[in-house]
Design a protein around this nucleic acid. Structure first.
Length: 665
RNA sequence: GCCCAGAUGGCGGAACUGGUAGACGCGUCAGACUCAAAAUCUGGUGUCCGCAAGGAUGUGCAGGUUCGAUUCCUGUUCUGGGCACCA
């Protein structure tokens, strides 16, 4: 998560170094994260957009350079990104290595980006894969400064190698040499340490209606901030929110707004702010929503403090989390709030994935082959196959409903021919992100309708640990539903109706209740919701066995289960306590969470597993305050232990209180 | 390619600090209730040998540490997610 944010900000540390250019006053400034490799520089590369090229190019290379720049211009950004062709041209100029005076050819290539660093790099082919490929492609000799770590076949970006051919860095491990090199560069006055950032998504405007309007006024193409007295600026109501004529935001169509007095003679900005503008700080506003003077009073934010828990998937790592952290830090630096991180704790819930289904079409035909007849997914009897997503709702398990498939999406596959296996068309399966384009989405409404929201909610929790991703599968939802019905039967009987009593609970019943409270408290605390559900199941099973219908037990249990099955808990709570809706404290949500008491749970003995050489052979029930010598005596008396010892004396007997006993022979 | 996460029965998973592997649920098998069905209840269910008692084996794979490893260490394979010319 931190890593994703770091990548997004694009923080990298290294140095900027100036290289003299042979026969010219100009210098070439490069940015590198690996100054330790400065003796391995075999060529320089400048981004095609840099003006410097025209100043340094030689007469002989002028034409070639012009031709290359023309070629680069003809390519779109997308092409440059997707086709990783190795292209470039020599400028005819040479840089001078400041340490050993070596002449280094300066090239131009599109693999270097103008927008990052200085738009120029020092290329070290033995340590950087891109540089290596470039050097190979243009036959530039490669200097090896890392000895056997470089095999001549591919670059090795290690920091662990001992440097060679590196003058004053010789014999040093690279990661240590890094610091030495930077110091030397600064000493010589030819460069300095530098930390670089590259925000990937810096655009802060959207051409749409919904979003906060910008509090600026445009005058002669210059934006001026509005006076604070006219804030907050509110989005005007609009019926028609189509784009403006030139693709601007919909606000552009609202003449009255665009020229409103608020903008003091200027024009409004037609774009609005992106979603994260508001989502980055709304939790602060929630602390003091009616405040007319400021976004949130310091007293309110000091009182409420940081958000205790942030639950979100990793997909929010940069979009939302990163920006709220930034907002918070800015507000903290301004002294407007007293904390510099918005959230105390982060919980990354896993993603519910889709289980996709595929059909296989013979390329260029309307014939589909059952997966079960294929040896691989690419071809069938020498013919190429197309692997196509099908709607999971037309597939029962793995078997495709071929009739539904034919009429799917307006008879798209009318006239389809199927090559079946034993009368069935078997689909391929893959687990992927749930997405409409993959036709693997399922609608939770159907399940809520059939089983109710409590069952659905509990089943989702029962699926497994929250932070784990897994494909959606409704197998097993019946089990949770049965549990809730069984829970209900502790209160109501189909014939007799209400069956709860005011009788005093037995110690066995209290034990069940209190160990449940303890476990639910602990597991909820560590977000282990799946084990909470199973704890409730165990509790209800035990109370059913005990035929316990006592209010003394059932009432605390209802409070306990409220976060897990809120609707059923509320309903039963109201009935059990004969609450009239007009009464105060009439909801289970206002009830006090039950506390467990050690005295009901405490055990005096334990059934210890007895192992011989680590393998469990029998069990011995022993008092918890028994001593080592007592244990040894009892263990040696045991018939099964004696059988395994076969007359020999054990080497030692390991006894771990409350855990186990192991006899080593 | 790089980074992160995961791998345990037929299935989802449990075992929290190294201490009875498989809790709980699904599925399945057998039985009870019923004219029948639904609902509900009882019992069995990792694999292999055995009538049983019992034994062997078992947490992706190969090693290691330990009296004892799903848990710790080294290597490796597969699956999912994210990033991807950022020097």
């Amino acid at each position: 998560m931190k890593e994703m944010q770091t990548n997004w900000i694009g923080k990298s540390s290294g140095a900027e170094v100036d290289f003299e250019i042979k026969g010219q006053a100009q210098k070439l400034r490069v940015y590198t994260t690996r100054p330790d490799t400065i003796f391995g520089v075999d060529f320089m590369v400048v981004a095609p957009e840099m003006d410097l090229i025209h100043q340094i190019k030689s007469k002989e290379q002028e034409e070639a350079v012009a031709e290359y720049l023309g070629y680069v211009k003809s390519r779109s950004d997308r092409e440059r990104m997707s086709e990783k062709k190795i292209t470039g041209v020599f400028t005819g100029a040479y840089a001078i290595n400041p340490f050993d005076g070596r002449e280094i050819p300066i090239w131009v290539s599109e693999y270097v980006l103008a927008g990052y660093g200085t738009g120029a790099i020092m290329a070290v082919p033995c340590g950087d894969e891109r540089d290596f490929r470039f050097a190979k492609h243009f036959n530039i000799p490669i200097t090896n400064i890392i000895g056997h770590h470089f095999n001549g076949e591919e670059a090795n970006a290690t920091k662990e190698a001992v440097l060679e051919n590196s003058d004053f860095l010789n014999g040093m491990v690279m990661k240590d040499a890094l610091e030495t090199a930077i110091q030397k560069i600064e000493e010589k006055g030819i460069g300095k340490r530098k930390i670089n950032y590259k925000m990937r998504d810096a655009g802060f405007s959207r051409q749409r209606y919904w979003g906060e309007p910008f509090p600026v006024s445009w005058k002669n193409d210059v934006p001026f901030a509005l006076d604070e007295s006219v804030l907050p600026l509110e989005l005007p109501y609009m019926d028609d929110i189509r784009h403006g004529e030139k693709g601007e935001g919909p606000l552009a169509n609202n003449e009255v707004w665009m020229n409103s007095q608020v903008f003091a003679g200027g024009k409004a900005e037609s774009s609005t702010m992106p979603g994260y503008a508001g989502s980055s700080w709304y939790f602060l506003r929630y602390m003091d929503p009616a405040n007319e003077k400021e976004f949130c009073s310091r007293a309110a934010s000091d009182y409420w403090g940081q958000v205790d828990l942030y639950v979100g998937g990793t997909e929010h790592a940069v979009g939302h989390l990163l920006y709220s952290r930034m907002w918070t830090k800015v507000l903290y630096d301004l002294g407007l709030i007293g904390f510099d991180e918005p959230f105390k704790k982060l919980l990354n819930q896993g993603m519910i994935q889709g289980s996709s289904r595929f059909v296989y079409r013979l390329h260029g035909t309307n014939t589909f082959v059952s997966k079960s007849l294929l040896n691989n997914e690419d071809e069938y009897e020498g013919k190429q196959l197309d692997k196509i997503h099908v709607d999971v709702n037309m597939v029962d398990g793995l078997e495709l409903d071929t009739n539904a498939f034919v009429i799917w999406r307006n008879n798209e596959h009318a006239g389809a021919v199927f090559i079946l296996d034993d009368g069935k068309y078997i689909c391929g399966v893959e687990t992927e992100k749930m997405s409409k384009s993959k036709f693997n989405t399922v609608n939770p409404d159907d399940l809520v309708y059939k089983y109710g929201a409590d069952t659905f909610r509990m089943y989702e929790m029962f699926l497994g640990p929250v932070e784990m991703s897994k494909p959606w599968d409704t197998k097993g939802i019946e089990g949770v539903h049965r549990f809730l019905k069984k829970f209900w039967r502790l209160f109501f009987d189909e014939q007799k109706g209400k069956i709860w009593t005011d009788e005093k609970a037995t110690s066995a019943e209290l034990k069940v209740l209190h160990k449940t409270i303890k476990k639910i408290e602990e597991d909820t605390e560590r977000f282990s919701f799946n084990t909470c559900v199973s704890t409730f199941m165990i509790c209800v099973n035990e109370l059913t066995d005990l035929k316990c219908h006592k209010k003394e037990i059932l009432n605390p249990l209802l409070i306990l289960i409220t976060p897990y099955a809120p609707h059923i808990a509320e309903e039963l709570y109201q009935q059990l306590n004969a609450i009239q809706t007009s009464e105060t404290n009439s909801t289970v949500l206002d009830a006090t969470f039950p506390k467990w008491d050690e005295k009901y749970i405490k055990e005096s003995s334990k059934a210890y597993p007895v192992a011989i050489n680590g393998k469990t052979r029998t069990e011995l029930t022993l008092s918890l305050d028994i001593t080592q010598p007592e244990v040894e005596a009892l263990v040696l008396q045991d018939a099964i232990v004696q059988k395994w010892l076969d007359g020999k004396a054990p080497k030692k007997i390991i006894y771990v209180k409350n855990k186990m006993i192991n006899v080593v022979m």
